[in-house]
Simulated assay, not measured.
Amino acid sequence: MNAIKIDTPLEYSIAVTEFLSDNPNANCVIIASATGVKQNYYQNFSKFLSKNNYSVFTFDYGGIGDSKLQPLSKFSTTASNWAQNDFESVVKYVKNKTPNSKLFIITHSIGGQLIGLVPSNNLFDGVIMVASQSGSWIHWKGFDRLKMQFLWYAIIPSLTKIFNYLPSSHFTRMEDLPKGMAIEWAKWCKKPNYHFDCIENAKEHYDKINCSIKSYSIDNDFYATVSAIDWIASKFKKSEVSRIHLKAEEFGVKDIGHFGFFRSQFKDTIWPIFLEDLKRFQSQ
């Protein structure tokens, strides 16, 4: 395990952790975190993959974890920057380091939304999307829909105005978020077509991805409904997309939820499923 910092065009650095395989012919995996989730959450999963002949790279988006280099009230970035600057810089770093390796992406939540906006996404050789979804409130029903609308229309605008960042750690499992990121994210989530209604040429950016994609959902995931996951999966028009819905009881537990996939308790059940996906990508 090797922790480094890489420079980016926006002149802030991104913290990257390398889990390099002992196999000199190992292919590479980049893990794109969920919103406000530190890269170390994926550490045990990354070690699992590295022991199975993949070199893994995790990173913190700007303002999160080890990429938080100053108080968030004084730091400026956006959700688009997380894709076009942060994620893109990691892709370029990995491809420069291992130009002859295949590059696979594993996304969690927002990571699967951002891949379509990464300028070098045509370099991806396979993608596993885990609970990656649209954030638009239209994919929730009843009282849950009202809670999502209250978040996007009231909580985020009010708190970011007061604190100059989003103190999300006080009411969610997420780390605090940079103001610009939270405001742009909320803007996307107010739109029926999410960031496709906000970002010019979003469709063309998504169409650059031309590889196999596996998209996973799970029961009882408040943050990623089946409808929301189906929607984002349908936007990769040039890719062969497989949708897989898992049930917690298949793995001997009552609940897995939005954050459970990468917990070590599933190293013998869910993690091997992802590993087999990577092996199939590799053989294509």
Score class of each variant (00 low, 15 high):
122 N>F: 14
173 R>G: 12
29 V>M: 04
99 P>L: 11
87 F>Q: 11
58 T>F: 05
163 F>R: 10
27 N>I: 03
148 M>D: 13
264 S>A: 05
258 H>V: 01
257 G>V: 02
214 K>F: 00
23 N>F: 11
112 G>W: 10
150 F>A: 08
163 F>Y: 13
200 E>W: 06
62 G>K: 08
32 A>H: 05
7 D>G: 04
165 Y>P: 00
281 F>V: 08
253 V>P: 00
279 K>S: 14
196 F>K: 00
28 C>L: 13
68 K>Q: 12
56 V>I: 11
15 A>R: 13
160 T>D: 08
61 Y>T: 08
40 N>T: 14
170 H>V: 11
79 A>W: 11
185 W>L: 01
212 S>M: 02
282 Q>S: 12
11 E>S: 07
99 P>K: 12
260 G>Q: 06
170 H>M: 11
79 A>Y: 07
176 D>T: 04
271 W>H: 10
250 E>K: 06
2 N>M: 11
53 N>T: 12
18 E>M: 14
217 S>N: 04
95 K>W: 10
88 E>D: 08
233 A>W: 02
273 I>C: 09
81 N>R: 12
243 R>W: 03
113 Q>N: 15
130 V>T: 11
109 S>W: 10
146 L>A: 14
283 S>G: 15
56 V>R: 02
1 M>L: 04
191 K>C: 09
38 K>A: 01
148 M>S: 11
195 H>R: 00
284 Q>M: 10
169 S>V: 06
206 Y>C: 00
72 L>M: 06
59 F>R: 05
5 K>T: 12
158 S>H: 06
263 R>H: 09
44 N>S: 08
45 F>I: 03
127 V>Y: 09
274 F>C: 14
256 I>Y: 00
204 E>N: 03
26 A>R: 14
7 D>Y: 01
67 S>A: 06
193 N>P: 01
147 K>H: 14
36 G>D: 03
207 D>E: 07
64 I>L: 15
45 F>S: 04
130 V>P: 02
188 W>G: 00
91 V>K: 10
1 M>R: 02
239 S>I: 00
103 L>D: 09
108 H>T: 15
120 S>G: 02
5 K>L: 12
145 R>M: 05
163 F>Q: 09
141 K>R: 15
192 P>W: 05
12 Y>C: 13
270 I>Q: 05
71 P>K: 08
80 S>L: 14
70 Q>S: 06
47 K>D: 08
40 N>V: 09
60 D>C: 01
38 K>Q: 06
219 D>L: 02
77 T>S: 04
113 Q>H: 15
87 F>C: 03
231 W>Y: 14
127 V>D: 13
173 R>Y: 07
18 E>C: 13
145 R>Q: 07
197 D>T: 06
32 A>N: 10
185 W>H: 01
72 L>H: 03
88 E>V: 08
10 L>I: 13
136 S>Y: 04
205 H>V: 03
237 K>G: 08
156 I>D: 02
76 S>C: 13
251 F>M: 01
83 A>M: 07
51 K>S: 07
32 A>S: 13
44 N>W: 09
99 P>Y: 10
125 D>F: 14
30 I>L: 03
160 T>Y: 07
56 V>C: 04
207 D>F: 01
182 A>C: 02
